[in-house]
Amino acid sequence: MQPKIMVKPAFTVLGYELKTTSGEGKNLKEIPVFWQDYLKNPQMRKAIPNKKDPSVELGICTNFNPENGSFSYLICSEVTTAEEAPSDLVKKHIPETKFAVFTTPLVPDEEFSCSIQETWQYVFKEWFPSSGYEHAGGLEIEWYDERSTNPDSMQMDILIPIKN
């Protein structure tokens, strides 16, 4: 699994925030439930205004605290403007960033969550140690587009900030 290397220009997102921790795998349980709740509630999806591409939804890991393993996970969309955003939405501006982009294998719906978690493990346990790159800090992005909507064959991208 070799990533594509890309530079993504600065952008702004709006969405919902879950505060979680990697301790005892809490995030591995809470984030899928967060997505299930979001996907079951069409009002939440409609509440994000000015989406740049309505077919793309992002999961962003940010605000990492290495001391206790806590971080924020955003379910959000890239927006053309964040003016007049509803007060219950979190706004985040993301500067231009160089990313390694990993694409998960094509799998049926029931294997999708596991495929995503296995791809994350591959990135940190196998790819980084031999890649010549370092994690650049900041945030990590899960990119869900039309490839993640077919229950028979699902796929998505994981964007990891990198530096040489």
Rank of each mutant, 00 (worst) to 15 (best):
P108I: 04
N50R: 15
I31P: 01
N68L: 07
P42I: 12
W120V: 09
E96T: 13
D145C: 10
I75Q: 05
S22N: 12
L89P: 08
K51L: 04
E118L: 07
V107N: 02
F34G: 00
S130K: 15
F128C: 09
A100N: 07
K29Q: 07
E24T: 00
C114E: 07
W35Q: 05
F11G: 02
T119I: 10
N150R: 08
F124K: 05
Y144F: 15
V101Y: 08
S55K: 14
D152K: 15
E134P: 00
Y122T: 01
Y38H: 11
E24S: 00
W120M: 04
E142M: 09
A136L: 10
F34W: 03
R147C: 12
K125M: 08
I75G: 03
E30Y: 08
C76I: 10
Q117V: 10
K91I: 13
N63P: 04
D157K: 15
Y144M: 06
L14Q: 02
A10G: 10
T81R: 13
G69A: 08
K40S: 02
K26N: 06
A47I: 04
F34L: 00
L28I: 05
M6P: 01
T119P: 01
K51G: 01
P129F: 13
S148E: 06
D157T: 13
H93R: 04
P108R: 13
E110S: 02
F71L: 01
T80F: 06
E140S: 15
L106Q: 11
M154N: 07
Y144A: 12
N68H: 09
D152W: 08
R45M: 08
L39F: 12
L58Q: 09
F11K: 02
A85C: 05
N65P: 05
R147M: 12
Q121Y: 06
I158M: 11
Y144R: 02
R45D: 06
L106F: 12
P9N: 14
F124Q: 03
K8Q: 14
K92T: 11
I60S: 12
I158R: 10
S115L: 09
F112V: 11
G25P: 01
G25S: 07
D88K: 14
L139A: 07
D37Q: 14
D53P: 01
N41R: 05
V56L: 09
K92Q: 08
G137P: 09
P95H: 01
V101T: 05
D37V: 14
E118H: 00
Q36K: 04
F112K: 05
L58F: 13
E17Y: 06
K125N: 05
